[in-house]
Computed example of a mutant assay.
Amino acid sequence: MELSEAMRSTGTCRYFSDKHVEDEVFYQAFDNARFGPQGGNRQPVRWIVVRDKDTKARLAELYLPYWEAYYAAVIEGSKAVGAVPATVESANYFAHHLAEVPALVVVCAEAEGLHPTDHELDRLSVVGGASIYPTVQNLTLALREQGVATALTTLLCAEEPAVKELLAIPAGYITAAHIAVGYPRDGFPRKLTRTQVNEIAFLDRFDAPMFS
């Protein structure tokens, strides 16, 4: 598979088949994902693959209240337009069937391996994620290459203490994301909708589009 094809078709999958994802598939994906760029080659990312039925159910139970709060806000706002977007409805299905996904990958990162340079600015600190999320994206692409779909969520990070206790994650590690992994029930998307290049790329200044 061409890299560009993988990047253009690795969308968020919310409908999974019940087909088992073999260890060999995960191994190959992790083997490729680990080459993601990170500061100082600290390699802070660790993965926990959760297949146990009861553990997945507990993670789904922790996840659902955060989704329900968001969904309720969308429903309230949708009264004006009279409909809920299909993407939100698919996400609602996903939330209520999270425990049925073949595997959930919990993304952990060693806090000492992160080097945020923006934590003193008067805004949300995000730079520490630069040593985490490129590797996470590598994983989704490496799985896509093997015909395996993913859905990345960060809602469950709000329940980090409970997740750490449930999964025996040691002190000094944080949870950075959770990835649903499995074979897609309905195949991969043929076309993803994204903002055009001429609206997101600028030259020298933010008010100077690079491409017309």
Rank of each mutant, 00 (worst) to 15 (best):
R34A: 01
G40S: 05
R42K: 08
R190W: 07
L152F: 04
G187W: 12
Y183N: 09
Y15A: 11
R194P: 15
R144P: 02
L98D: 08
K164H: 10
V163Q: 02
V126M: 13
R185V: 02
P65L: 07
A80P: 05
G39N: 05
A111N: 14
F188N: 14
E160I: 00
S78K: 10
L166H: 07
D52M: 00
G40L: 07
F16S: 01
I75A: 13
V101R: 03
A180F: 04
D186Q: 01
R185M: 13
E22T: 05
A57C: 04
E165N: 08
P170H: 13
Q146F: 05
P161C: 06
K56Q: 07
L104I: 15
I75R: 15
G129T: 09
P37T: 13
K164C: 12
Q28I: 05
E24V: 10
F202T: 12
A208G: 09
I75D: 04
F30S: 00
Q38H: 11
E89Q: 13
E89C: 07
C108I: 03
E89Y: 03
Q137R: 06
A208K: 13
L139K: 05
H115E: 12
G187D: 09
A57S: 09
I200Q: 15
E100R: 05
L59K: 01
A6E: 14
L167T: 07
F35R: 00
H119P: 00
I169T: 09
A149C: 05
K53L: 02
Y71F: 13
G39D: 07
A99Q: 14
P170A: 12
G82E: 12
R51P: 02
A86H: 11
V25M: 08
I179S: 10
V45Y: 00
I169C: 08
Y63C: 00
D18Q: 05
Q146A: 07
T193S: 15
L152W: 06
Y71T: 04
G128M: 10
F30T: 03
G11V: 13
